[in-house]
Amino acid sequence: MQSDSIKRAIPWMLSLAVLALLPVTGLLRGSFLSHVLVMILLNASMAQAWNIIGGYAGQVSFGHSVFFGIGAYGAAYAVTNLKMTPYPGALAGAVLAAVLAVIIGYPTFKLKGHYFAIATFAIVEVFHRLFMIWEDVGGAVGLDYPILKDGWRNFSWSRSKVGYFYGALILFGIIFSLVRALEKARFGYYLKAIREGQETAESLGVDARRYKLAAMALSAAMAAMCGAFFAQYNYRVDPSMVLSLDMSMRFVLITILGGIGTLWGPLLGAAILIPLQEYTRAYLAKLGPGVDLVIFGLIIILVMQFQPKGIMGMIDAARKRRRKLAAAGNEHEGGRQ
């Protein structure tokens, strides 16, 4: 068993290593390409954070921009107002986000139906308003970073994006490794069981509410870490940048497109949508704002028409077809002998 799990980890470790070597190859010299890669890794991490509660546990949240925002403000507040490094701020943001997640989840997970989704919807608006009028965190103007020395201490790089690339890769590595481990563990099995049938799960000894709360807290904390990265990357944060339904939908849509409740879905979704978004923004901007969102929507409608399980679902279906063909071929040969 031990050697099995090591064997299973090899492709994953290799892909991380390949990604880590990308900057050395010089491929990332163009700053736009590095920007796109950073955004893919960040958005894949965000989608994966959402996937824990939305995909594995099957509880759709529209409130992840709030957790993201809390992380972003945590890091920014530590840097701008407290003159600290962003790390304690990011950590505090993650803890606060987890606490908030439990506060929202506790009453709504008791109820059946869509109450949880509705409650998460509502908090986005509440927090947007709250941060707009909260003077201590800059109100509508938000927080602007001062000029800082480049490097890991400040998590800030002004000359090249390679530092951010590694930062995003670490974030991606942590969140994906976490979900990868979770998928094969009791926790992951229980979340899936709750999604597939809460009463069944409870009949098997699963305290469904506790597991949903734990998943929600973990998901929110991870979303907050992504938010902290986002603030560092943009060197500023304001309420509309992070605390919006648009931002919340990003978590949901990338995961749905890639394949909800699957390990690689979030990465696939981000790898398709983010370049598209960044390139349409760069080259089709004259068509007016929001062109990228129109294309975003069209792709999702198209994919969902064919395969509600997203791109991972398409890949699985193709694999199954091939296996069936192979099996049919074998039988045929067997018949002739």
Binding site: Y189, E196, L204, G205
Partner: peptide, 17 residues
């Protein structure tokens, strides 16, 4: 009430956990 998307073995594993 099968946990439909999970395999037969995975269904039983949920109990075994």
């Amino acid at each position: 009430r099968p946990l439909k998307e999970m395999s037969v073995l995975d269904n039983i594993m949920v109990g075994a956990f």
